[in-house]
Write a protein that binds this DNA or RNA. Sequence first.
RNA 1: CGGGGCGUGGCGCAGUCUGGUUAGCGCGCGUGUUUUGGGUACACGAGGCCGCCGGUUCGAAUCCGGCCGCCCCGACCA
Length: 437
Amino acid sequence: MLLSRGFFPTLKETPAEAQIASHRLMLRAGLVRQTAAGIYAWLPLGLRVLDNIARIVREEQNRAGALELLMPTIQSADLWKRSGRYEDYGREMLRITDRHDRELLYGPTNEEMITDIFGQSVKSYRDLPRCLYHIQWKFRDEVRPRFGVMRGREFLMKDAYSFDLDYHAAVQSYRRMMLAYMRTFQRMGLKAIPMAADTGPIGGDLSHEFIILAPVGESAVFFDADFENTDWVNAHFDYDNTDDLATFYDQMTSLYAATEEKHDAAAWERVPPARRREGRGIEVGQIFYFGTKYTASMGVTVAGPDGAAVIPEMGSYGIGVSRLVGAVIEASHDEAGIIWPDAIAPFRAAILNLKQGDPACDAMCDRAHEALGDLALYDDRPERAGVKFNDADLLGHPWQIVIGPRGAAAGRVELKRRADGTREEVSLEDALARVRG
RNA sequence: CGGGGCGUGGCGCAGUCUGGUUAGCGCGCGUGUUUUGGGUACACGAGGCCGCCGGUUCGAAUCCGGCCGCCCCGACCA
C-alpha cells in the first residue's frame, strides 16, 4: 500500500478531549474520528486493526465449535417485553419509534433475539448442544461515554449464546468458551485474567470477566500473583475432552481473582500476603451462565429423549471487539506511539524511503513494496527522513524497513523492530523474510 | 443523574473580565527556494457567519437570556 495514495491522517498535536494514552494515540495515528459523544468513525488504519481482531475472535470461536450468524442491530420491543427486560433495562437502551409508531430499539445485546430464533427452529434434544455467535454493533446509551472507544456508546461486540440440555452440559459450554477466550486474548498479545464477576442485567449466577491489567482500567481487581505462573498455553487442551476442560477450568479459577463487586475479604486473607495483587483492569470480555432465564420466560422447550419437554440451559459470552483496540494500545505503547502486536497490526511493516527520487532508493523500495504488497505500508511521500521515522513509530508497525542512499548503494537495508527499537543492517531479501515471519 | 469546565480557520490556543479600525499566534495545508538518516529554514499564499437563536447598544467574539454540542470528576456500565 502506498502511503501517498492512502487515507492516513496523522496529528502532530493531541486533541484536547483525549485524556488517556490509547485515545490520544488512536486520534493522532488516524485510527478513528469522533462523530458524536461515544460514537466513532473508523478510518482505514483503525478498520484494519478492528478487522484483524474480529478475525482472530472469529477463528477461535469457530475452533471452539461456535457457529457464526448475523443478527440485526434494530430489534422489536415485543421481544424484550416477552422476557421482561424492556422495562428492566432502563435508559441505557436506545428506544426508537418507526413511522407506524411501532416500538423498536437499537440492540444493546441479543439474548432475546437469539432465544427466539433458536426456539422457533429447534424442537428436539438431538439438536443440542449448539453455540451461536455474531459480531455486530451494539448501542448502550451510557450516561457518560469516555476514554475513546473503550467506553463508547456504539461498540462492536462478539456475542455468543450456548444452548444445552442440562446443567452439566451447560458447564462444559461455559468452560469451552473460557478456553476459547484465553486463546483469543493470548493471540493478540494480551495477558488476560478471568475473574469472578457480577452478572448485572444479563442475570444468572456464574460469571467471569476477562481483565487486562492497566492503570486506566475502570474496574478495581484483586488477584493472586501466582496466576502468572499458570502455564495453560502449552497444555494442548481439547475442546471435546471433559477432563481437559475441567483441568483448564481449575487452573483458571482455583487461584483467587475477583473484581471489586465480587471481592471476598475473607478469601483474600487466605492468599499469602506476598502474592496479593491489587490494581485496575480493563474488562475485554465477560461470560455468563444463566440457566433457563430466557428460555423459560420466552417459552422455549425441546423434546427430551423420553418425549417430555425440557427447557434448554443457556449461557452468553461477550468480547468487546472495538474496546480491544483501545485495550491493546493501553497495554502496548511508548512515548513515540503505538506498538502493535504482530497478530493485529494494520501492516506488518513500513517501508521508509529516506530519499525519495534517489534512483537506488526508489528501486529498492519498489522491490520491497512489490514483494510485500498489502503487508506493508510504503511511505513514498517526499518528506524528510525524520517525518517518516516519527510517523512510522506513531503508527506502530512491528517492523520498519529503512532504505536510504548509503545502504541502497551497498544493497543493504536497515531493519528496525518497533517493540524494542533494535536495528540491524541486512540484505533486502533477509528483511523481507523476517517481515513475512 | 449530581458537580465542574469548554465551544474562536484542520489541530492546539490567545483575545471575552474592562464592547470600538482589516480577529491574532503556533502547528498543519498550498506554491517556491532551501535542507536531505529522527517532525529543516525562509518567503509568499489559501482557509473564520468567533456553536446556534434572540436581546441590549451607534457598535457584540466580548454584555444579557435561552438552546445545542463536547470534555472532566463522581454514581452507573461490555
